[in-house]
Design a binder for these strands. Sequence first.
RNA 1: GCCCUGGUGGUGGAAUUGGUAGACACGCAGGACUUAAAAUCCUGUGGCCUGUAAGGCCGUGCGGGUUCAAGUCCCGCCCGGGGCACCA
Length: 928
Amino acid sequence: MDYKFREIEDKWQAYWAENKSFKAEPENEKPKYFVLDMFPYPSGAGLHVGHPLGYIASDIVSRFKRQKGFNVLHPMGYDSFGLPAEQYAIQTGQHPAKTTDVNIARYREQLDKIGFSFDWSKEIRTSSSDYYKWTQWIFIQLFNSWYNLDSDKAENIEELISHFENFGTEGLNADCEGEVLFSAEQWKEFNEAKKEEVLLNYRLSYRSKSTVNWCSELGTVLANDEVKDGKSERGGYPVVQKEMMQWSMRISSFAQRLLDGLETIDWPEPLKESQRNWIGRSEGASVQFKVKEKDLKIEVFTTRPDTIFGVSFMVLAPENPLVDIISEETFKESINQYRTEASKKSERDRMADVKTVSGQFTGAFAIHPFSKKEIPIWIGDYVLASYGTGAVMSVPAHDSRDWAFAKHFDIPIPQVVEGGNINKEAHEAKEGILINSDFLNGLEVKMAISKAIEVIEKEEIGKGKINFRLRDAIFGRQRYWGEPIPVYYKDGVALTVKEEHLPIELPEVDAYKPTQDGEPPLARANAWKYNPENGQVGTEGYDLEWTTMPGWAGSSWYFLRYTDPNNSSDFADSKNLDYWGNVDLYIGGSEHATGHLLYSRFWNKFLKDRGFIKNDEPFQKLINQGMILGTSAIVHRIKGKNQFVSKSHINNCQTTAIHVDVSLVNASDELDIEAFKNWRDDLKDAEFVLEDGKFVCTREVEKMSKRWYNVVNPDDICEEYGADSLRMYEMFLGPLEQSKPWNTAGLSGVHGFLKKYWRLFNNGESIDISEEEPSKEELKSLHTLLKKVNEDISNFSFNTSISAFMICVNELQAASCSKRNILEPLTIALSPFAPHIAEETWSLLGHKQSISQADFPVADESLLVESSFAYPVAINGKMKLKVDLPLSLSKDEIQKEVMAMEKVIEYLAGKEPKRVIVVPSKIVNIVL
RNA sequence: GCCCUGGUGGUGGAAUUGGUAGACACGCAGGACUUAAAAUCCUGUGGCCUGUAAGGCCGUGCGGGUUCAAGUCCCGCCCGGGGCACCA
């Protein structure tokens, strides 16, 4: 009986679907376990073998946990709003919803072939209006919330309004932009528009000006990703930094809690670290500098208030609005020129370029708050408008960027902390004694910082402050294929759509690109007005918002929707939310470290504050899976000719490297020349210089991508080797977290293993299972495996458990073991990894129920106890020989035994060892 | 530039966290079965030296250090990968 994997896999996939084997509902008998994958964006290219890596890992854990007695929720869905579908729509005129549907169908088909234990009854799509109705609803909740710093929570905006009505801003401690003070009486006299304007400064979703990459030729905003050297990647048009009115989210209110929460969750340390860096908490002081001859102050934030006497100039970000006010007439022209130049550079370019120093004097001076000296004010692009106040007090002696600036423009560099050589470089170390600093002289830096803050506060020129790098998240996108923001404008005032009128569905438009005037695509819609009376969207009523939500909106709460995906009266029933709680295990790529994973935590904390959910953190444990890289094949063409040279001739000629489809190259890097000629029209008449009668390509490991023709499709692997082989191989490839190159040739290893396992069940002709009791050796093989697998799954070390399976099956095969009491536990242990073959052999063993219902076997450690150990004996740390000794021996006894050995005496050659180190059950080391 | 991460045979990787470097596979070489192939099974396989064997030397990116003992710890470099706020 052969291992007919195609038949077996079809059979069991149909069985699981028909019996809804993995449907999960709240119940009280078993503990719950929520296993989540980062849901995919359904791209037109379909899945390649890299995508399922994390899904296979989470599926193994899900199946394992079920067999360990947990009620497991393991859902899947699609993050189906996004830019690629929109780009495609712009090019082809095809509605993105259509392409998205096609892509999802393809994804589903591909996923089904791999045999995942997803509960498909829970599927969600972020682009379906049943779903985004609730994304819009959450937006409205955020709009109707403010951040109370006293309770350190987001609260209903009604409470803020009632505070205004009773006390005005008196006694209010709220997070707010550009605070305006007023009394209760004044509040009552404000008109609606004014009230809204005030409230907008408090709302958690709000409108404000922010800087974007604007490309006027494309009439759109671009991601940093889409901008290369100040030009758009598509078309190469100029891109400038431009201020725009945008919807934003006040994530900064949650900065400290997002930081603190990291201590309570089990995430990879590097990932936590990048969130910490992103949040960027720094302690210091804000200090105000008066501008000479103007009734104006410049506020700066500094982490080194101790160096305040070392300030010899100030620098403003070129975009800082103060620049217009303070600049002297004679400098205006050069300033505007400098600003134009700066606007062509992206923030990242500005940060990356530390070698070029540039700046421009404004002609204005500030007054030092202590020394009262005049300090020149410059603008410079190393100061970023988006961080701090967009202005710095420059201490060139103790900050390297200030130092470089001062050197370049010949500004004095007064030293205020002892040490270093400030003629050569800035002395940045946060240690040393203060000098030339009036009341700070003689203090250690640490002491000086607190003393400086104390005096700054006393003199009322500033105060101690904690600053965060985390900025509020821009929420509006000038795109079509996203959730409409449920906002309309009444007399210029932004109001949210009534909850009972949700969803506001995406309107039909004649094209998916921006309008001629550079307005977002939704401005094209004819019927894009809202009537708050009846909820109708059409040609009557108030204008609806034109921008849509960013990609991260839908993905910031989808895990909650999985608990109750078809609920139409609530985003999820609280019973379900409470039962499933937060995600126990989340698997996905580390590229989401600071985007999705931070925004989700933000929304989760917000929803908790407002009482909709109970958990503070959404994802308790998180694992990052690595990338599977493609092994590209490259041929080399002689420059100017249609002639290709084999690998060994490359160095002798000038060649161009060309990527060739990996399917045209075999495992020994040999090119199929005929297939290659037919691959593209221009290759029909190509000539080839061979070596040993073959044409050999070179290989390169890089990201799997259509562009490099190195994509391997899981469907092909399932067809040729089966889903179980694919699953096993992806896990066998290496540690889950690591990125590793794909090599289809290696699949024969795990495929051979599965065949070997299959043969344990039959004698070549028919099923042949022995009821005999297992031998000691067989039990030891089995239980060594069980111990390893139990440990490895808990540590997500799947590659090593697969080698344990191989070792076990090799041993059982050598012993020709076909005993039920060995094969049954072995089969259950294998079933999370290779579920199809396991179901089949389970039924061959006579079981009627799915193996997913079986209990995972536990290792009996008593079968594994050894009585002796083969001690390695090392001389001077180098292993020379081994000796088998009982484990019961004491240190001294071991030493005696070893020193008495003939070989050891030979090695010693009469010398007396200086030391003998005995580590029981580890090693013996003799030092000569 | 900044932050994070990795570097071990021809290849993917293993190494109980300081204690036998190279488990398990791929590939390669040789053999058995076969008319032949496929499939399967067996043997060998880090490098170098010694005719073989016994044995010896070298070996975890590079250079130092700590230790009886370093792939693992410390210091300084080199190279690859990921992220850096509108890709998802």
